[in-house]
Design a protein around this nucleic acid. Structure first.
Lengths: 285, 285
DNA sequence: TCAAAAGTGTTGGACCTACACCCATGT
DNA sequence: ACATGGGTGTAGGTCCAACACTTTTGA
């Protein structure tokens, strides 16, 4: 749609300096799936989901861990800002990404009013990130209640997300509320306690939920795997993300059309060698 | 996480005035499902999806149609800003809503750098909106191409979204690109031409896609229906949103556990009276 | 020999598709 | 009578959970 003459005249005189504006950051929740080696020569390594955190060098939350992020530069789009940020701050250039959610609570940053446009990034173990640390992610449901009435329901649960590595153990408690009265649906995630900066544990929780949901109906999982993988590896990824066990025979049938078999085998493992597969990008998802 | 002493000292001296900030709007894509009366006494009214647009009173895009939106007030959260905006501008207070996407292209607003945090709102025909007009939504696929290669695919289609009512007919053409090379997935929606302000046709497109996707795995459709409805009405809603025809017998079985039958019937219609149902909010979705 | 993983086969049930068929109504 | 929508029944197929079973390997 072209601008009118009137519009052009208006724009020459326009100034936005009279308006209050919020600060805006882009923040990247970077996830990967790592192999936890086992001492038993027979056992396969366990898959573990990890998130990359940086220790803050400046106040607020000095020395605390946070997901990589930056105030946006007005010369770049949101996506460009995010990409530049992860390239410059952590040296990451190869990844899958999608926009997650925009957080705009009033007190989420103690400095001033800051909106956060958050992204989920998935990368694989071959990428080498700098300036920060990977943390294992463990989720535990601490309590839940579920009330159903004529007109709807109220579901609440408390979960604990533990982020840990050799040096650190960061505990975070969230309260998840989902209420429906007639058709009015209210979903809320609130922080009970957190060991990381700002509301970043919320961003991480949103990313985990998004990943979980998209597992079912997209190819997204292959962004977390190496190019070649066995079906058990693939299954272990699903299980780690979903938090449930799957039946092997059924899993193989269900994922058959997502992968292409290779003429290569994983050997030297103390058990029958496994055929390797690659992602079949011409599937029907 | 509590702030440290160091943080507190830092915050006392903090000023953000040195940083460039974008302007931020919240924008609401308001949808409803209306009955298009038929002259044939036998025929049921057809369901039609509509979007609510306002004619702009100020430049830029003076007199053009746009979705309701406002620059955010730093005293409110994003959600609060959106709610206030639709209450004050169009008098709407009862609706389902969810955040859609945050748009941050550099030239999306000719005035200055403006981010748009967009929301999808669903309401029903009983709500009376002011200051704007409802437009029927029609989507037509103009062309599509689909290339598949070893490493992925390139899918492109051109669609035309026509927004119309008794007085106006607004045509909008979009190019939808979805490309996958190895695992790098790129999805893009770009405007070929539009008869409405800014990139608002993109927001509308995003809302339509979200609605379509959520039909399958949520209760979302009931937000567009009156409290009491017949199963054919429900089916027509699905068909209008999905753009496909469904088989009656199968539809009834599939939706059986989403609804509760009432002891009421639609009559005077030139055919067998239909039983009315209400949404069953204790279903398993 | 054995533990672990790799991989195949089968069975019963749930659900889904497509279609045929009957019912009720106002003009 | 008839067009229209309301509603049920069913045959065939697909998909899926659950479980049993065989194969292959390194130590």
């Amino acid at each position: 749609m072209n601008l009118s003459q009137e519009d052009k005249k208006f724009l020459e005189l326009y100034s936005d300096s009279q308006y209050d504006k919020p600060s805006v950051t882009v923040d990247a929740v970077i996830l990967r799936m790592i192999d936890k080696e086992s001492k038993n020569y027979r056992k396969l390594p366990q898959k573990k989901l990890q998130v990359f955190l940086l220790q803050r060098k400046y106040p607020p939350y000095l020395d605390c861990y946070a997901v990589p992020g930056t105030f946006i530069d007005l010369n770049y789009t949101l996506t460009e800002s995010m990409k530049l940020c992860v390239k410059n701050k952590v040296g990451l250039e190869n990844y899958y990404y999608e926009q997650l959610f925009t957080f705009g609570e009033k007190q989420r940053d103690p400095r001033t009013r800051v909106l956060s446009v958050s992204y989920m990034l998935l990368t694989n173990v071959e990428e080498n990130l700098v300036n920060g640390e990977w943390f294992d992610i463990d989720i535990e449901e601490k309590s839940s209640k579920n009330e159903t009435s004529e007109s709807g329901y109220l579901r609440q649960k408390e979960i604990e997300i533990t982020l840990s590595n050799e040096n650190k153990m960061l505990k975070n408690q969230l309260l998840i509320t989902s209420e429906k009265i007639d058709l009015k649906q209210t979903d809320e995630v609130s922080i009970i306690s957190t060991d990381i900066a700002f509301d970043h544990i919320k961003l991480i929780y949103f990313a985990l939920q998004r990943l979980k949901n998209k597992l079912e109906y997209t190819d997204i999982v292959f962004n977390l795997l190496p190019k070649k993988f066995s079906l058990t590896e693939l299954k272990n990824c699903y299980e780690e993300i979903l938090g449930t066990k799957l039946l092997d025979a059924n899993f193989r049938r269900k994922t058959a059309n997502l992968v292409t078999p290779l003429n290569e085998y994983n050997q030297d493992k103390g058990h029958r060698p496994s055929q390797l597969f690659k992602h079949n990008s011409q599937n029907n998802l």
